[in-house]
Amino acid sequence: MPLNLKHIELPAFRLKSGKVQEISVSYQVFGRALHTAPIILLNHALTGNSSVTDWWSELVGDDKVIDTKQFTVLAFDIPGNGYDGNIDHLIFNYQDWTLFDVGAAFAKALQLLNISFIDLGIGGSIGGALLWEMMAQQPELFGTIVPIAADWKATDWVIACCHIQELILSTSSKPVELARQHAMTFYRSPQGLQSKFIRGKDASSFKVQKWLDFHGIELKKRFSLPAYRLLNQLLASADAAGNHGEDIAAITATSQTVIELIAIDSDGFFVAHEDRRTFDLLKREKDINYHEISSVHGHDAFLIEHDQVKEILSGIFQNRLPKSSKIACNKIRWLKSA
C-alpha cells in the first residue's frame, strides 16, 4: 500500500437502490497541496488505481503534461477495488452497485475535502464513463472533462462483453485469470495482435497464447475476485443519462462544463463511432470537441500511444485551464475567507 494513500470513511452510504452500507474511499494527492493550485482529477480504468504516477508515468509528474509542479493531481480509488489491501474494504454485494453510486461516493468524498470545483477531470475507459456520471450528478463541479476511450453509457456491445466476463468470473476454476485473458482480446485489436506477434511461436505454443497467459497470471497477483466482479458490474451499468433514456443532451444542458472527447480509431470496446455520435448530437448546444488517437492497439491505446495523448492533452490544457482556474482561485479565496 502506498505511503501517501489516505482514506475517507463513509459509515452510512446510501446506494441508489436504497441499501445503506459502510464504505471506505481511498485517495492520493500528487503535486501541489489541495486548495493551492488548479485541481486535476484523474479517474482510473477497470484494473487501475490511485497511483497515477505509476501507471501513467509518461504523462503525470514534474514537468510532464500533467505537471505536478503546477497542479494538484487528485486520484480516488473506486470503492471496493482492493488497492489498499484491506479485505474489510472490499464490496461483496456487487450486484447492488452501479456507476451512479461511485459518482455519489466521490461527491461525498469531495465534500469532505472541501472541494467544490475541479478545473479538469481526465478518465480512461470506466474512468471516463465515471466523469460523465459525476458531471450529470454535479453540473457545476467541473470546468472541463476529458473522457478517453469512454462513453457516457454502456452500449449493448459493452454489456455483452461484461456479461461474458461475469459468466467466467462466476463459473471458472481460474476466474480472474481467464476473465483477464478474455478481456485482453477486446482491449486490444486484431491488427495490434498481428503486428505484435506475427504468428510467432515459442516451442509448441504461439507467443500470443503465452502473452495472454502472462496477463491472466499477473492480474491474479494484484486483483481479487470480489474487486473484479464489482468493477465489471459497474462498467456494465454506465448510464449518465439515467432516467432520460438516450437523451444525454437533457443532462448536459444543465451544465456549463466543457467536454473534450478523445476516442481511438481502432477501439473495439468503447468504439469511436459512439463518441462521434455524441459529438454530433451536442456540438450545436455545448462547448465540445472531438479528438481521435490513431493506433493499431485498440482500446488500450490510451495507455500505449503516449505521444499522441500528450499532444492532445497539451492543447486542452492550454485552451481550457486558464479560464477555469480563475474560477477555482475565486473559490479558494472564498474558502479561506469563510
Rank of each mutant, 00 (worst) to 15 (best):
K16S: 13
P147Q: 04
A160N: 14
I91E: 08
I23L: 14
S294A: 10
N86S: 07
D247S: 02
H273R: 14
V65C: 10
A33D: 15
A238F: 06
D265S: 12
K220A: 15
S237G: 00
K19D: 13
N289H: 12
I159R: 02
I118W: 07
I87E: 15
R320N: 13
P190R: 00
N86F: 05
H35P: 02
V73W: 04
G82D: 09
T278L: 15
G242D: 06
D54L: 12
N289Q: 15
D96Q: 08
R277H: 12
L219P: 05
V29D: 11
S50A: 13
N243W: 09
Y187D: 11
P226T: 00
I40L: 05
A328E: 10
A263Q: 15
A160T: 10
G85W: 03
Q28F: 05
T68Y: 01
I78K: 10
E305Y: 04
A179F: 07
S57Y: 11
D300H: 01
H35I: 01
E166W: 12
V258G: 12
A150G: 06
M134R: 10
R276A: 04
E166L: 12
K221H: 06
A179E: 15
F142G: 08
R229N: 15
I23T: 11
G82E: 07
K201L: 06
S337N: 14
N243Y: 14
T36H: 08
A250N: 13
I78V: 14
V271M: 14
V296C: 06
N43F: 00
P79Q: 12
D247R: 00
L261W: 03
H44W: 02
S337R: 12
G216I: 01
R277S: 14
A33V: 09
I159D: 04
